[in-house]
Amino acid sequence: MSALLVAEQVLNGLQYGMMLFLMAAGLTLVFGVMGLINLAHGALYMTGAFACAAVAAATGSFWLGLAASLAAAASAGALVELAVIRRLYARDHLDQVLATFALILVFSETTRWLFGSFPLYLSLPEALSGAVDLPGGLVYPAFRLAIIGIGFAVAVFLFWLIGRTRLGIRIRAGEADREMIAALGVDIGRLYTLVFALGAALAGLAGALVGTIQSVQVGMGEPVLILAFVVIVIGGIGSIRGALVGALVVGMTDTLGKAFLPQLFALAMEPSAARAVGSALASMLIYILMAAVLIVRPQGLFGARA
């Protein structure tokens, strides 16, 4: 195997990690501030992808579609927060799991009712289609490079938002002591709606970007949701930094495991058995990683408390 292939796979791992980070950032934010397990995060991701595809098809502009995905997911998020989610903050995790599980059903079937049962078309904008030549003879799709860039930009934005702005101070205060900041006159209800909408917008953005290179279809959010949970659990729930590190670790592990495990096994066994065992193990790898992390550090890598 050539150095070029290894380099491309590492880049793939990085890119996959960034995609997972976009999804996990909103999830971990919502959990950190409101203590809410939101299984419907994947539904908001799907909302973003469908909004982007529909608007891009109607206007012919991918960028308008991308803006629409942010707007649609944020407003769907705000609406859901006002109607359902705010009644769940005081409840235990169980009720949250059940209610947001119910929301998945509602979102999926409503989307199918609105857009039909077939996948939608969503294609790359002209400016980002095709591949670019990188130093060292590496050829890499431009859009995937853009995803890596957007991922970093979102990470920087979130660190700035939480660390340097008034809203960030309130968010951090809300995490630490809910009653106190309410007593200080901050409208906690509005703060929560805002944070939830922000998390939803991030999910919608991820859905639009990922939908562009994958497929826009009902149920697209569920496999990613489980992965996003794996990411935030490994990173430590509630921590943006944890989500970033967790996403990169999961992205690398998954990509490199799939690429090289079957070849590794082929050194010791006959090829067809090695492929079967290697691919089976590769698909279990991130869950094994997660279990291992939790056994060593039950609160995740950057988690404050168990």
């Binding site: 292939l5 990922v210 994958q214 990509t255 799939k258």
Partner: peptide
Amino acid sequence: TDYAGEIA
């Protein structure tokens, strides 16, 4: 749904 590794 992501085939970057296989395409490589």
